[in-house]
Design a protein around this nucleic acid. Structure first.
Length: 795
DNA sequence: TTAGCAACTTAGCAACAATCAC
DNA sequence: GTGATTGTTGCTAAGTTGCTAA
C-alpha cells in the first residue's frame, strides 16, 4: 500500500491515520458561521464556560477583534497590543527556595514527604563498608528478566531474582518508588591532563595555563564541524575562553577569536586518535577490562534487594555546550562538575558511597518518592541533570507500561473526546474554540503541546506556542504548517483540515494580530491539560501522540502479506513504522555516504541481474521449450543494457587487477616473514596480461562471459541457480527501497518511545517472525514486560 | 494566577562495536 | 586479516507535566 495517495501526496497516516472509528472529524462539512453562534453547548461545555467566565478576558464572545496575549499585558502593565514571541522571564540562576528532597543529616524534611519504609539505622555504616555490604547482596544479571524470557536458551534458573516479573503484580504505582536502595554513586570524568601545546595567536605561540589550555582543547576538538564555523558558537566560546585567559594569564595578547589558531592542538588530538586506533590487542583488552570493571561497579544498584542496571552513571564531562539549532548559548563552556555539586539519593540504611578523595558530596538524601540516584545542576541553563536507572530497569519498565496503558485507555474514550472538541470548534468562547482547534491539531497531526520558551533558548514551537507566521491558509481548507519543532527539526506539511478548523485558524490570525503573535493566545499547555484531565484521568496532550502512533502502527500492520517471505513481512512492518515516524516528524540528516551507498546497491543489483541474464540466455539456447513452462526465462533484465554490461565488465577488469596486485604483495610479505623466496614479479605480470587480454576482448566485442554454473549443468540445476539469483534480486530490491524511504526518516524514535511494544510482539507471533528481527537486544530488554502477549493482542 | 522548578520522557547524533565482503 | 559498512549504544539536549510559592 502506498503511503501517499492522489490528493496531494499527504501521508495517509497523517490524513486519516487509521483512526479507531470513522468519526475523526465530526462536523467536516457543516460549517456555516451562523451555525456556530447557535450551537447549544453541551452540559460540560456550559459548566466550563461558567467556570471560565469568572472574570478573565479570555471568555469574551467571539468577535473579529482579538485581544493581544494576556502575558504581554501583565508583563508590561501597559495596554494590550501585539506581542512578538511569548517568552518566559529571563531566568537568572536562583537558589532553590523549596528543596524537594531531604538532606540526610541536616536539611529540613522534603516537601513531598518521602515514604521511609526502611528502618533507620542507629548509625550510618561507614563508607569503607559500603562495597563489602553490596557485594554480599544477591546479584542479578544485567539482563535478568530478559534472560528469563529469552529464546536463546541461556541459563535462567541460577537466581530467584531473575524470575521477578513486576508486570504480573497488580500493584498500584502511587506509593513510594522503592523501599531500599544501594549504589556506588557516580563516576567522575578523569582530571584534565595538560599537553603543553600552544595556541597560535597572530603567529605567536602562547603556552597556556592548564585550565585555559583545557578549554582551547575543547575548541580544537570541534574544528571541522559545523559548530566551529557557527558565529554564535564562536562568540560564546570566545567569551568564556577569554574570561579564563584574563583570569589565569597575566598580559596575554589574545583579543579576537579570528586570530586564534588551534591547529597545533588539533593535530595533537588527531594524533591521539590515530594512536588509539593502533592499540595492540593486549592494550585493547586492558582498556576493555577497565571499562567492564567500572560498569560492574557503578553500572548497577540494589533496588529493593534486586540488582538493577543504572543508566547514565557518568557525570557529564566539561566541554562546550552544543545547543541545537539557533541556540543562543551554543558554544558556552560547560564547566566541570565537582562532587560538592552532586546530590546523592540512597536508602537510609545503605552505606553512603565514598566521594572522590579530598572531596565530599554536596548532599545525601533518602527520598524514595523519586527514581534518581544522583543529581547536579549544570551551569549553562541551570537545568538539573539526573542519574536514573537504565531503560530495561523495573522502574522505567513500569513507567513505560503505564504510559502505553494510558494511551490504550484513550482508545475507549477518544470518540467522545473528538465529538466534544468538534462541537467546541464552534464555541462562542474564544478560549474554548482555540482549545478545540489546538486539540484537533494535536490529535490529528501528533503535534507536541508546545510550552513557552525563553529568549535564552532556541526559537522552537509546539501546538500551543505556534505563531501566526507558522500557519498559512489556502481556501477552501488547505493549511500549510512550517515551523521549527523540538530539536529545531523543521515541521513542514500541507494538508486539508476540517472546514471549521480552517475558519478558526483564519479567525485566530485576524488583525490586529501580527505574524509574530501567538496563534492560540488564549491557550497554554497547562489549561489544555487541565481540560483533558476532565475528559479522562491522566490525559494530557502527550498521550495523543502515543495513542495515535500506536494506533496508526497497528492499522498499518494490516498490510502485512499473509503469504510472503520473512523479508516481505519485515518490509511491511518497517513501512508501518515509517508511517508513524512520518506522523511524528522524526527526521534524521541524510548521511554523507547515502548517495554512494545507493549507487553501490544499484550496481550490485544490476550485477546479479546480469548473472541471471547469462543463465537465462544459456538456458534458452539449450532448452528453448522451457520458455512455455517458465515464461520468466524469456524476460529481459531491466537496466542490463549492452552499454551497462560493457562498463561493468571493464570495471571488473580494474578490480581484478587491483586484487591481483594486492594478493601478490600480501603473499610475498608472508613468504618474507617465513624467510622463503618471493614469488617472481613475472607471475603477477602473467595475471595482468590475462586481464589485459580480457579487457581487449570486451572492447572488441569478442568477450565470452563465464557462466555462473558449470558448463555441463543440467537444466534443473540452471533453473535452481536462476531462482536463487531471483531471490537475491528481490532482497536487494527490498533493501534499496527501504534505504531510500528511510533516507530522512528515523524509525527508531517511534519504536523506542511511541509504539506499544505489545503490538510488535503480537505481530511477530502472528506472522512467525523472530522478535530479534525487529527488536534489537536493547529493545528486547526494555520491553520484557510486553513479551507475554499472544498473537491476538490488540492495542 | 503564574513563574519557577523538579522530575521525568523524548530526541538526534556521534562514537563505538559488530558484521560483512573481499 | 583488513577495511568498509551497518547496527548499536551512549550521550546529552530538549521537550512535557505537575506541583508549589509568591
Amino acid at each position: 500500500m502506498s503511503s501517499t495517495d492522489s490528493d496531494g501526496g499527504i501521508p495517509l497516516s497523517v490524513r486519516v491515520a487509521g483512526l479507531p472509528s470513522g468519526k475523526r472529524n465530526g462536523g467536516g462539512g457543516n460549517d456555516s458561521s451562523s451555525d456556530s453562534d447557535n450551537v447549544p453547548l453541551s452540559i460540560r461545555s456550559k459548566r466550563q464556560l461558567s467556570s471560565a467566565d469568572s472574570g478573565t478576558e479570555s471568555d469574551q464572545p467571539l468577535s473579529g477583534r482579538v485581544k493581544a496575549p494576556r502575558k504581554k499585558v501583565i508583563a508590561n502593565g501597559s495596554a494590550p497590543g501585539p506581542a512578538p514571541k511569548r517568552t518566559k522571564k529571563a531566568l537568572a540562576p536562583k537558589e532553590t527556595k523549596r528543596p524537594r528532597t531531604a538532606a540526610s543529616a541536616t536539611a529540613a524534611p522534603p516537601k513531598k514527604p518521602a515514604v521511609k519504609s526502611e528502618p533507620k539505622p542507629a548509625a550510618k555504616p561507614s563508607a569503607a563498608k559500603a562495597k563489602s555490604q553490596i557485594d554480599r547482596k544477591p546479584m542479578i544479571k544485567a539482563e535478568s528478566s530478559v534472560v528469563a524470557t529469552s529464546a536463546d536458551g541461556s541459563d535462567d534458573s541460577d537466581n530467584e531474582n531473575e524470575e521477578f516479573k513486576w508486570w504480573l503484580d497488580n500493584k498500584d504505582n502511587t506509593g513510594p518508588k522503592w523501599s531500599t536502595l544501594e549504589h556506588f554513586g557516580v563516576m567522575f570524568p578523569p582530571e584534565y591532563e595538560p599537553h603543553g601545546l600552544p595556541l597560535v595567536y597572530r603567529g605567536q605561540k602562547i603556552t597556556m595555563h592548564p585550565l585555559v589550555e583545557e578549554v582551547a582543547t575543547f575548541f580544537a576538538g570541534v574544528l571541522g564541524s559545523d559548530n566551529a564555523v557557527n558565529k554564535v558558537f564562536q562568540e560564546n566560546f570566545f567569551k568564556d575562553f577569554k574570561g579564563l585567559l584574563d583570569k589565569h594569564m597575566d598580559r596575554h595578547p589574545v583579543k579576537a577569536f579570528d586570530h586564534c589558531d588551534f591547529s597545533i592542538i588539533r593535530a595533537h588530538l588527531d594524533d591521539q586518535k590515530a594512536k588509539r586506533k593502533t592499540m595492540t590487542k593486549a592494550e585493547k583488552e586492558a582498556a576493555k577490562k577497565e571499562k567492564q570493571d567500572i560498569e560492574e561497579k557503578y553500572g548497577f544498584c540494589m533496588l529493593d534487594g534486586r540488582r538493577e542496571k543504572v543508566g547514565n552513571f557518568r557525570i557529564e564531562p566539561p566541554g562546550l555546550f552544543r545547543g541545537r539549532g539557533a541556540h543562543p548559548k551554543t558554544g558556552m563552556l560547560k564547566t566541570r562538575v565537582l562532587p560538592e555539586q552532586v546530590t546523592i539519593n540512597i536508602g537510609s540504611s545503605a552505606a553512603i558511597p565514598d566521594p572522590p578523595p579530598g572531596h565530599s558530596w554536596g548532599k545525601v538524601v533518602n527520598d524514595n518518592t523519586v527514581t534518581w540516584l544522583a543529581m547536579w545542576k549544570e551551569n549553562i541553563n541551570n537545568n538539573t541533570k539526573y542519574v536514573f536507572l537504565a531503560a530495561g530497569s523495573s522502574l522505567k519498565g513500569q513507567s513505560d507500561m503505564r504510559k502505553f496503558d494510558k494511551a490504550r485507555n484513550l482508545v475507549k474514550c477518544v470518540d467522545d473526546i473528538r465529538a466534544q472538541y468538534t462541537k467546541d470548534l464552534k464555541s462562542e468562547v474564544m478560549a474554548e474554540r482555540q482549545r478545540a482547534t489546538a486539540l484537533y491539531l494535536i490529535d490529528r497531526y501528533a503535534l507536541r503541546a508546545g510550552n513557552e520558551k525563553g529568549d535564552d533558548e532556541a526559537d522552537t514551537v509546539g501546538c500551543c506556542s505556534l505563531r501566526c507566521e507558522h500557519v498559512s491558509l489556502e481556501p477552501p481548507n488547505i493549511v500549510h504548517f512550517d515551523f521549527l519543532g523540538k530539536d529545531s527539526i523543521r515541521y513542514e506539511r500541507t494538508t486539508d483540515v476540517d472546514k471549521q478548523v480552517w475558519k478558526n485558524l483564519r479567525l485566530f490570525q485576524k488583525a490586529p494580530k501580527a505574524k509574530s503573535d501567538m496563534l492560540f493566545d488564549r491557550l497554554s499547555p497547562t489549561t489544555l491539560n487541565s481540560f483533558l484531565h476532565t475528559l479522562m484521568p491522566g490525559l494530557t496532550a502527550k498521550v495523543f501522540r502515543t495513542f495515535n502512533a500506536s494506533f496508526v502502527f497497528q492499522n498499518q500492520l494490516r498490510n502485512t502479506p499473509e503469504v510472503g517471505t520473512e523479508a516481505e513481512k519485515i518490509l511491511a512492518y518497517n513501512r508501518a513504522n515509517r508511517e508513524v515516524a512520518v506522523l511524528c516528524n522524526h527526521q534524521r540528516s541524510v548521511s554523507k555516504s547515502f548517495e554512494g551507498v545507493m549507487t553501490k546497491i544499484e550496481d550490485k543489483l544490476l550485477a546479479v541481474r546480469y548473472q541471471r541474464m547469462l543463465l537465462k540466455d544459456h538456458l534458452m539456447s539449450i532448452a528453448p521449450m522451457l520458455k512455455k513452462k517458465r515464461p520468466d526465462i524469456a524476460q529481459k533484465e531491466a537496466g542490463v543494457t549492452p552499454k551497462w554490461i560493457k562498463g561493468y565488465l571493464l570495471a571488473t577488469c580494474e578490480v581484478d587487477r587491483e586484487k591481483a596486485r594486492k594478493k601478490f604483495e600480501r603473499d610475498n610479505e608472508k613468504l618474507k616473514e617465513a624467510n622463503e623466496p618471493a614469488i617472481p614479479e613475472s607471475k603477477l605480470d602473467e595475471q595482468l596480461e590475462e586481464i589485459d587480454a580480457r579487457e581487449k576482448s570486451i572492447n572488441d566485442g569478442t568477450y565470452e562471459p563465464e557462466l555462473p554454473v558449470a558448463k555441463n549443468a543440467t537444466t534443473d540445476k540452471i533453473l535452481e541457480k536462476i531462482d536463487k539469483l531471483t531471490e537475491r534480486v528481490g532482497n536487494i530490491e527490498v533493501n534499496k527501497i527501504e534505504r531510500d524511504e528511510n533516507k530522512t526518516t528515523a524509525l527508531s524514535t517511534s519504536k523506542i518511545n511511541y509504539i506499544d511494544p505489545r503490538i510488535s510482539v503480537a505481530w511477530c507471533k502472528k506472522n512467525n517472525v523472530p522478535l530479534e528481527k525487529i527488536f534489537n537486544r536493547a529493545l528486547r530488554e526494555k520491553f520484557t514486560w510486553a513479551m507475554d502477549v499472544d498473537s491476538e493482542w490488540t492495542f
